[in-house]
């Protein structure tokens, strides 16, 4: 090797030395495929979440309290509340899901898990998808299950509840995915909560608009399929693009 100014080290392969007998490498263990890797990443996050149930309840309690503020601030008349219900439900759900986002990658970045994911030889995009799915199961889905009760307390008739459940369930998928990009982008920043909101909320506006519209139509008892399909389209767009973007952002944060 030609000598340069810097630090140079060269090892003579010990096995090239005469008389050295390399033992053959053991048969390599079967590599985990992408599905198996993603399954384990998902299970790990679920198991961790149930070790700290307090963190799970936070977004739900937040959602409940935010919706409680409206009757107090505006009017306890059910007729008026019913008109406001779509907006209240969606703003509450949006803020609730935002609250949990900060924890999506934070711990994994601190304890070196993200680094190991990035170096695992597995698709980081797949692992990010698994983590986001876990996040949705732990926050989006519970919020969706709670939304009908919130709507009920705002005077919405029971007939509208399945539609509201459906709209929030589909919309929260898109919210989790959009949020995963913001959470990954703000990994390098301490106390990133405010910045995370600034990044994520504008991107969430389409979800809010179509979600509130679907909810409104459900409450009026008309077909809400149009906005629901648009919500689903946003969710599909998120599924295809968000994990890619989150993986790229995570790689940058590890540099």
């Amino acid at each position: 090797m030609n000598q340069r100014d810097g630090h140079v080290a060269e090892t003579l392969g010990a096995l090239d030395a005469p008389g050295a007998q390399p033992r053959d490498l053991p048969a390599p263990a079967r590599r985990a495929d992408a599905i198996e890797a993603a399954r384990l990443a998902l299970l790990r996050d679920l198991q961790l979440a149930f070790r700290k149930p307090g963190q799970l309840v936070q977004p739900l309690a937040f959602f409940a309290i935010v919706t409680l503020l409206f009757p107090l601030a505006i009017s306890p008349e059910l007729a008026r509340l019913r008109e406001l219900a779509p907006g209240v439900v969606w703003v509450g759900a949006l803020l609730g899901s935002l609250l949990a986002l900060e924890f999506l990658f934070r711990d994994d970045a601190q304890d070196g898990t993200l680094e190991q994911y990035a170096l695992s030889g597995q698709s980081l995009t797949g692992l990010m998808f698994a983590k986001t799915l876990a996040h949705w199961l732990l926050t989006g889905l519970p919020l969706a299950l709670m939304a009908p009760f919130v709507a009920l307390s705002l005077g919405v008739s029971a007939a509208a509840l399945p539609g509201i459940l459906l709209a929030v369930a589909v919309g929260s998928v898109a919210l989790s995915l959009i949020g995963s990009i913001g959470a990954a982008l703000t990994l390098g920043i301490k106390r990133s909560g405010a910045l995370l909101s600034l990044l994520t909320l504008p991107l969430s506006l389409p979800v809010l608009i179509f979600g509130a519209r679907a909810t409104q139509l459900a409450i009026h008892g008309t077909s809400f399929l149009g906005p629901l399909e648009l919500l689903a389209a946003l969710a599909v767009l998120g599924v295809t693009l968000a994990p890619l973007a989150a993986a790229a952002a995570v790689r940058i944060s590890l540099e």
Partner: peptide, 11 residues
């Protein structure tokens, strides 16, 4: 500042 290295099997 200009680090070069080379490692062969078993080293």
């Amino acid at each position: 500042r200009g680090v070069s290295l080379r490692l062969a099997r078993g080293s």
